[in-house]
Design a protein around this nucleic acid. Structure first.
Length: 581
RNA sequence: GGGCCGGUAGUUCAGUUUGGUUAGAAUACAUGCCUGUCACGCAUGGGGUCGCGAGUUCGAGCCUCGUCCGGCCCGCCA
C-alpha cells in the first residue's frame, strides 16, 4: 500500500520488519500517557500499530504530541522496534514504531461516540454520524463482506456466461405492485418518471434481444413502509435466462448459492430441498418457512370436531404443533404464550394446550370437553410423547395458519432451535399464479403479471383463475425470502389473457405494457429468471437482524437519511421549473 | 392507518411503580501526577431546556392530555 505519503499500512508490520524505517498514516485511536512514556494507537482500515514516544530521548516530539486528540489524522516516520511487552491480541502486537517525525494531516473534533468495536453510541447517533460509525470494525467488516460477496457473485456469473448489463433508473410508473418513487420531468411538465421497482421488463426485453444469460447487481426502489429487513432503496442480483425450463433455473442458481456458501462461509451445503407452496402453507403456515427445526403443523379437524366444543366445531381449521419437552410449562408460561398470540400483531382469539405428562396423564385447557381418550388420540395424531406440550389454534384456514406460524417461530426461538450459523435452504415452488383481493374484488398477480401459468393449468386461466399454479419459485434461507423468480410469458396472446384475468382492459394493457407485448411479436424466446435480495443475502449469511448493517448509508424507519436530513423541501424556483407550482 | 417500547450530562443508562432539600453512575472530555501501557492507573474538575407544549398540584424528571423524534411489529411490500 505504499504511496507518496506512507510506506506501509497500520496492519501489516510484524517482527519481520524490525529495524526498518517506515512512514505510516492514520487516525489516532487512543493516547496513553504514562509520564515519561507516551503510546499512541494509530488506526487505519487495515489495523492498529502502536507508536512509542520517550520523553527522555525525544523531548521535542513529546512536546509536539501534547495537544493531540482522538481521531486526529497524522503521518509518522520512525523505526520498527520489538516491544518490551507484547500484545498478543493484535497482529502487529510484537512491534511498535519509535517515532522520529510527526506531521499533523488534520485535526479532529472529539467524536460524539467512541470509535470502538463496542461503541458507547446509540443507533440514532451512529446513523447521524455514519461516516464515523463506518470507522468501527463491525460496520467496516460488514461492508467488506458485502464487497467480497459481490465479487464472488460476479466471478461465478461471468464464468458461466452471464453478461452484466445496466438498465435505466428513470422509467415509467405502473399501478401494479409496490408504490413507485416518482421524479418530476422538467422538460415535460405534469409528467413523471418512476424509479424502477426492479428491472423486470428490461431484462425480458434483453432476452428478446438475444442476451440469453443476463445479470445485474442493481439498485431497486419501492415506496413502502420499512422494516428491519426492508429499505426503500435496496440491491438485487437480477438474473434472466433464455431457452430454459424451471429446472434449468433452479439448477443454475443452486450452483451459485452452493458456490457462495463454499467461497464466503466455507460451508458445503446439502442439495436444496424443494417444497410446494401448498405444503409450505400446510406444514409451516408460511410461504417462507424456517426449516431449521420441525414442529410441523398437524391438522386436527377429524380428531377434535366430534365433541361439543363450539370453538373447534365451528372452525374451518383446527391445527396444532408439538413443543418437545415442554409439558412442564407453568401456568404463567402458558399464559405468556396465550398473550403472545392474542397481541394485536398476531390477533388470535385464544390458545388451547395439552400437556402430555410423564405419568401418561393428559392435562389440557379443554378438559371440560375432551376426556383422556380424546386427548390421547390428539397426542397420537401429533406424534407427541410423554413430556411434550401440544399447542392448538383454530379459526379460518389462512388466518389460523399465519397465527400458528408466528407461535411456531416464537417456540422455536424459546427452545433455541433457530441456531445462528446453521443454514437450512429451501426452494418453495408451485406458487399460485393469482391472488384474490377482497377489497378491490379482483385478482392480483402473486408474483408479477409476466409470470407464466403452469402449461397444464393454462386452460383454467378464464374458467378457474384462482386454482392456476405458476412456474414461480422462491429461495428461502432460515425463514427469510432471499430470492424469487419465475418462468415468464413470452407469447403475446397469453400475456393478453393474463392482463385480462387481472382486470385490465385491452387499452390499459396496451398503454402500460404495449412495449413488451409488441416486443413479443418479434421473436421472443422462452425465458425466465429470478432475483436475489443482495442486502438480505448479506444479513442472512452473517446472522444479522437487519440489512441496515450492510448498507453504507441506510435510511431510518421513516425512510429518512438521518445524516443528510433527506427528504427536504426544494426551493420555489425549482418547483416552478418542474411545473409543480 | 394501527399496536408495543424508548427519549434524563458529549455518550450509554439508573431514577418514574409510591410527586417532596442541591437529579446520580459509568464512560467520554479537561487539568495534574505517573517510563512499558495496550479497557493503563491515581487525583481533581467542568458538564443537565429531564424531547417539546399544555394541564393537575402548595410542589412535576416522576401523574394526565397533546405533540415531535427514534426503534420493533401488523397492515402494506407484484
Amino acid at each position: 500500500m505504499k504511496t507518496s505519503l506512507r510506506t506501509h499500512t497500520c496492519g501489516e508490520l510484524t517482527a519481520n520488519n524490525i529495524g526498518e524505517k517506515v512512514t505510516l498514516c492514520g487516525w489516532i485511536q487512543k493516547i496513553r500517557k504514562l509520564g515519561g512514556m507516551t503510546f499512541i494507537d494509530l488506526r487505519d482500515r487495515y489495523g492498529i500499530t502502536q507508536l512509542a514516544f520517550n520523553a527522555e530521548t525525544n523531548p521535542d516530539l513529546c512536546k509536539q504530541i501534547e495537544p493531540f486528540g482522538r481521531e486526529w489524522v497524522i503521518q509518522v516516520t520512525g523505526t520498527v522496534a520489538e516491544r518490551y511487552s507484547k500484545n498478543k491480541n493484535i497482529p502487529t502486537g510484537d512491534i511498535e514504531i519509535l517515532a522520529e517525525k510527526i506531521t499533523v494531516l488534520n485535526e479532529s473534533l472529539t467524536p460524539p461516540f467512541t470509535i470502538e468495536d463496542e461503541s458507547d453510541g446509540g443507533d440514532e447517533l451512529r446513523m447521524k454520524f455514519r461516516y464515523l460509525d463506518l470507522r468501527r470494525n463491525p460496520v467496516k467488516n460488514n461492508l467488506l463482506f458485502r464487497h467480497k460477496l459481490g465479487i464472488a457473485i460476479r466471478n461465478y456469473m461471468n464464468n458461466i456466461g452471464f453478461v452484466e448489463i445496466e438498465t435505466p433508473m428513470l422509467v415509467n410508473s405502473t399501478p401494479e405492485g409496490a408504490r413507485d418513487f416518482v421524479v418530476p420531468s422538467r422538460l415535460s411538465h405534469g409528467e413523471f418518471y418512476a424509479l424502477p421497482q426492479s428491472p423486470q421488463t428490461f431484462k425480458q426485453l434483453l432476452m428478446v434481444s438475444g442476451f440469453d444469460r443476463y445479470f445485474q447487481i442493481v439498485k431497486c426502489f419501492r415506496d413502502e413502509d420499512l422494516r428491519a429487513d426492508r429499505q426503500p432503496e435496496f440491491t438485487q442480483i437480477d438474473c434472466e435466462m433464455s431457452f430454459i425450463t424451471q429446472e434449468d433455473i433452479l439448477q443454475t442458481f443452486e450452483g451459485l448459492i452452493k458456490y457462495i456458501f463454499k467461497e464466503i462461509k466455507g460451508i458445503d451445503i446439502e442439495p436444496i430441498e424443494r417444497i410446494t407452496w401448498h405444503d409450505a402453507m400446510k406444514y409451516y403456515g408460511s410461504d417462507k418457512p424456517d426449516a431449521r427445526f420441525g414442529m410441523r403443523f398437524v391438522e386436527l379437524n377429524n380428531v377434535l370436531q366430534h365433541k361439543d366444543f363450539k370453538v373447534f366445531n365451528e372452525a374451518e381449521l383446527v391445527v396444532g404443533i408439538v413443543a418437545k419437552g415442554c409439558a412442564h410449562y407453568s401456568r404463567k408460561q402458558l399464559d405468556e404464550l396465550t398473550n403472545f398470540v392474542k397481541r394485536p400483531q398476531v390477533g388470535a382469539t385464544g390458545l388451547v394446550y395439552i400437556q402430555c405428562q410423564e405419568d401418561g396423564h393428559f392435562k389440557s385447557s379443554v378438559d371440560k370437553f375432551y376426556d383422556q381418550n380424546d386427548l390421547q388420540a390428539v397426542a397420537k395424531e401429533c406424534g407427541a410423547e410423554a413430556g411434550d406440550l401440544i399447542l392448538i389454534m383454530a379459526g379460518p384456514r389462512m388466518k389460523t395458519q399465519t397465527q400458528l406460524c408466528q407461535l411456531r417461530l416464537e417456540m422455536g426461538s424459546r427452545l433455541g432451535l433457530r441456531k445462528a450459523g446453521e443454514y437450512k435452504l429451501l426452494w418453495v415452488v408451485d406458487f399460485p399464479l393469482l391472488e384474490w383481493d377482497e377489497e378491490t374484488q379482483r385478482y392480483y398477480a402473486m408474483h408479477h403479471p409476466f409470470t407464466a401459468p403452469k402449461p397444464e393449468h393454462e386452460a383454467m386461466l378464464e374458467s378457474d383463475p384462482g386454482h392456476v399454479n405458476a412456474n414461480a419459485y422462491d429461495l428461502v434461507i432460515n425463514g427469510t425470502e432471499v430470492g424469487g423468480g419465475s418462468i415468464r410469458i413470452h407469447d403475446k396472446e397469453l400475456q393478453k389473457r393474463m392482463f385480462k384475468a387481472l382486470g385490465f382492459t385491452e387499452e390499459e394493457a396496451q398503454k402500460q405494457f404495449g412495449f413488451l407485448m409488441n416486443a413479443f411479436q418479434y421473436g421472443a424466446p422462452p425465458h425466465g429468471g429470478l432475483a436475489f435480495g443482495f442486502d438480505r443475502m448479506c444479513s442472512v449469511l452473517c446472522d444479522a437482524d437487519t440489512i441496515r448493517d450492510f448498507i453504507a448509508f441506510p435510511k431510518n424507519n421513516a425512510a429518512r437519511d438521518m445524516m443528510l436530513g433527506a427528504p427536504t423541501p426544494i426551493s420555489d424556483a425549482q418547483l416552478k421549473e418542474l411545473g409543480l407550482k
